[in-house]
Design a binder for these strands. Structure first.
Lengths: 208, 208
DNA sequence: ACCTGAACACCGTTCAAGT
DNA sequence: ACCTGAACACCGTTCAAGT
């Protein structure tokens, strides 16, 4: 019977970074099997920890989902940033279109994660989630405002324009994920093409 | 100890219209407490029936949800129809805008129902749901095609235009339900105004 | 501070049985 | 054909206890 040092005890006992592990594995389970299949008990098991350990880091399951959603908004924001930084599109309107495409692509690549981000969570109960989703919207507002300053977009309230563009991109993403436009989109390439087409329609208007 | 006639036995034993009762009460529970709170057992109890009776009418919980979603698409279609038939707007473009508003209003009036309609259900597994959602989209395509024939809208593929309008309206609805545009919408009146504004932007284009 | 194990109420689903 | 009751595996959450 060997006695453990305090350090050894701790290393056996403490996971070290359980919170982040739960977020990562939770996101993994989400993409493997969807929201319905994500149980706290299975997640704990996968993390190699008792089924109660997660309660040290999240007061309940919904809080875990909120944290996962928050991370999703961060990732989505990064995808938008890198589209904006892409030097392939020197024209700012083309860059806006590429940014919209990257939004839809992100959603289609992480459908379950995206569904949690816009799912039945009560946003107001999770201030961090709310703040992060606001930051993501703010990116779009900034892009729009810059395009107004350079004379590319109409000088109406930027929040209105941003909300319009966002609604369009979110709506397309959600409709595609829910598969309500079947036999329309066969490949990811199609989705990118469709989002560009839609954004061009939106920019130039639908009227004859 | 009285003996029951066959009819009496049947009337005691058979609920009569359990399937529709379950759909109606399920929708009710949905609007009272959201998807998360809708359990098959509670629903059966509310219907005054054993917790297994629902299985006579639905193979599992997901099928019940699919049937509820299907009914939602029917109601949404009816809301759009009556907006189209509203004589207040003789101008067909104004009628299109009113139809878009009625879409968003429906979604905000039945948020949990709407979330089930676009939730993580596998559309392809429920042919009736798929057909009904297609019928609803077809209404919009018909409206768009008529507006193209009358020279009001651009002669591009009507499915593209319909998908663009639908994405915009669905996106706005979903973003408002998920409360991701806080401090922006305070009343239902605001939501109707915002959807009209967005549709006008969409029709005339965002470019300067 | 962080984790475990036993316990509780609830859930979806199955199955044999009743009418 | 339609419904019931007992049973099963699973779930989120609580609590007392361990280190």
């Amino acid at each position: 019977m060997t006695t453990l040092t305090l350090d050894e005890k701790i290393s056996k006992y403490h996971h070290g970074d359980l919170r982040n592990t739960l977020l990562a594995l939770g996101t993994e389970m989400l993409s493997e099997a969807g929201v319905a299949a994500l149980s706290l008990r299975k997640l704990a098991q996968r993390a190699g920890v008792s089924h109660n350990a997660p309660y040290q880091h999240f007061p309940d399951k919904e809080s875990l989902l909120a944290a996962i959603a928050e991370q999703g908004f961060r990732l989505l924001g990064e995808a938008m940033d890198s589209a904006q930084a892409n030097p392939t599109y020197p024209d700012p309107i083309e860059r806006l279109i590429a940014t919209g495409q990257s939004y839809v692509t992100f959603a289609l690549n992480h459908p379950a994660h995206y569904q949690v981000m816009f799912g039945p969570l009560n946003n107001d109960a999770y201030p961090d989630l709310k703040a992060t989703s606001h930051d993501t919207l703010a990116k779009l507002i900034n892009i729009v405002a810059a395009l107004q300053a350079s004379g590319h977009l109409r000088p109406t309230p930027p929040l209105d324009l941003a909300a319009t563009i966002w609604s369009c991109m979110h709506g397309l993403s959600a409709i595609l994920i829910a598969n309500k436009l079947p036999d329309y989109i066969r490949t990811q390439r199609d989705a990118a093409a469709l989002s560009a087409t839609m954004l061009r329609h939106l920019l130039t208007g639908l009227l004859a």
